[in-house]
Simulated assay, not measured.
Amino acid sequence: MDVQHEILAHHFLQGDEQGAEEYIKTLLEKHPRAYLYEDIITPAMYYIGELWERNEISVADEHLATAICDFVLSKLHSESGLVSRRHQKNFKAMLFGVEEEQHYIGLKMVADTFKNHGWRVRYLGPDLPLEHSFTQIQKYRPDVIGISAALPYRLKTIKRLLERFSQLEWNPLIMIGGRIVKKYDLKEFESEHVMVVKDMDHLKRWFNEGREETINETS
């Protein structure tokens, strides 16, 4: 097997924390973290999802793989070091999976990306009910709200969230991401205050183009 994401996927499926961590560290010697997220870890988790859809692995296998991936991501984040206070920005992001959405690995990678760019981040995890999310948002008043979904029947929930978020007086930027944006055209949701994030490269370009600096101009 010579496909990198499949090699990593099989470390995850075998519950091989050490093997997965060592393999990722080897890749990081040659590639930036953004490449690791977009071209290795994300395809690895999609590959695992496809195996489950074809009944080649069980739900327990998928949960084990997710747990190992989560462990490795947490380890990488802890070893990467924190952004110094001198370089920390005043921007705030809040990230969560919509109600009943269980997938969260992509969200953790997005949270890490925001932190690496000096943002203050509140990661609320998957499956957050609408009212709870709205309460947290009103308390924290983030500049960016990132929501994630994988399956098409989450579209109704996304619409409900966008309707509620449109009532926020400070007009935060809403980012929609997750596997759903790979499979479906969500252009109808896009606006001055709503951005559909197609992948990690798209988010990276947003930062590199200095788009974050325009947030306060549109709020």
Results as ranks from 00 to 15, higher is better:
N55C: 05
R205T: 13
H31Y: 15
A60Q: 05
F189I: 02
N216S: 12
E38D: 14
N116T: 10
W52D: 05
R164H: 10
I68C: 13
H77M: 11
G81N: 10
L186T: 05
E21Y: 04
R141Q: 13
M200G: 04
L130E: 10
Q4W: 08
F96D: 07
L73W: 11
C69T: 14
D2V: 12
L186K: 05
R141T: 08
H103L: 08
E17W: 00
M175A: 15
H132W: 02
S191T: 11
S80E: 13
D39P: 00
V121T: 04
I174Q: 13
H87E: 12
V181H: 07
L203H: 07
Q167N: 05
H117Q: 15
E79L: 13
T214P: 02
S166Q: 11
H132V: 08
R179L: 12
I57Q: 04
Q102C: 03
T218L: 12
K156H: 07
S78N: 12
G19C: 03
S80L: 09
I174G: 06
K25N: 12
E190R: 05
D61N: 15
K115F: 02
A34E: 15
F71R: 15
E99S: 12
R179N: 13
Y140H: 06
V196E: 04
R86P: 00
F134T: 02
L173V: 15
E163K: 11
L36N: 09
V144Y: 09
R164G: 05
R86C: 00
V3H: 12
K183S: 13
R85M: 08
M45H: 00
Q136L: 07
F12G: 02
F114A: 11
P129K: 12
C69Y: 08
S133V: 02
